[in-house]
Write a protein that binds this DNA or RNA. Structure first.
Lengths: 136, 136
DNA sequence: TCCTACGATGGACATGGTCCAAGTCAAGAA
DNA sequence: TTCTTGACTTGGACCATGTCCATCGTAGGA
């Protein structure tokens, strides 16, 4: 993701300081932040950045496929900057922590045509649930 | 799920008309309703039922394992009464419809021990995404 | 350097969900 | 059957997350 800024500029984006800071916050993190967490971290470097701008920028990064939105609990969505490497999520039912994991197998191949009901299937998300060592 | 009321009574639940109506609404539906949809349908038969009671009852049914909460889009959670038969969900990115599907394979077996990071893994959710025939 | 359209701002608004004090009632006791 | 009591319900306030919009600011091309 380190060349994210270049890719965005290449797509005709106007590069503002706000967008740069949001992208850098995501880039530096290996956890999956909520929009408010992104806003809080961005505001440490750019105190006047508004929530609306963070939401807008995150939404744009999602529609460009640079980050993935994950909503595992019906509360705040989280943003996963690791969009270019397929992976699954392991969520702790105790504390809500999300870890990226890599499973074998291809769930898309496990859905036979007669179970697709005419849908054009484009992707699949796999979420494992359990308790982390600290919560167990 | 037709013996749900018996099971709940067996667990010491006080059987109120509100709980009965909520359970019957879920029982009669094959789609995955939101809490507000459950409330609306329950209110057709019990006009004074409150939102809080519907939320409470749904939460209790979830913690008893009688229904499953699904949050596929970060908006309203949906309630899946088909909790006793393992299945996956096929979600239309256009209109949000959710269909139950049955894939082959066992995703739990696809997560090797070294990718579990000490978690006690208890379950897995698989969500396929795509466009339904009407939206394609 | 100047223009201008695109982006940022912040505050109002929308939606989904939770909390709580007070009133109600299911079901066991007598 | 009636009584009793604590679990359940109610409705409205409140909270968290997210969206909208009118106005202002500025990146980047001319």
């Amino acid at each position: 993701m380190s060349d994210l800024l270049e890719r965005l500029r290449g797509r005709g984006w106007r590069m503002t300081s706000q967008r740069r800071v949001v992208a850098e916050v995501l880039d530096g993190e290996h956890v999956h932040l909520t929009a408010d967490e992104v806003h809080a971290r961005a505001a440490r470097r750019l105190p006047e950045i508004s929530r609306a701008t963070v939401y807008n920028t995150l939404g744009e990064l999602v529609s460009l496929g640079e980050v993935v939105e994950v909503s595992t609990d019906g509360r705040a969505k989280r943003y996963d900057p690791n969009a270019h490497r397929p992976h699954q999520h392991l969520v702790c039912s105790g504390c809500g922590t999300i870890r990226d994991v890599h499973a074998t197998g291809d769930p898309l191949a496990d859905l036979p045509a007669e179970e697709r009901f005419g849908f054009t299937v484009s992707g699949v998300e796999v979420t494992y649930r359990g308790l982390c060592p600290a919560c167990a």
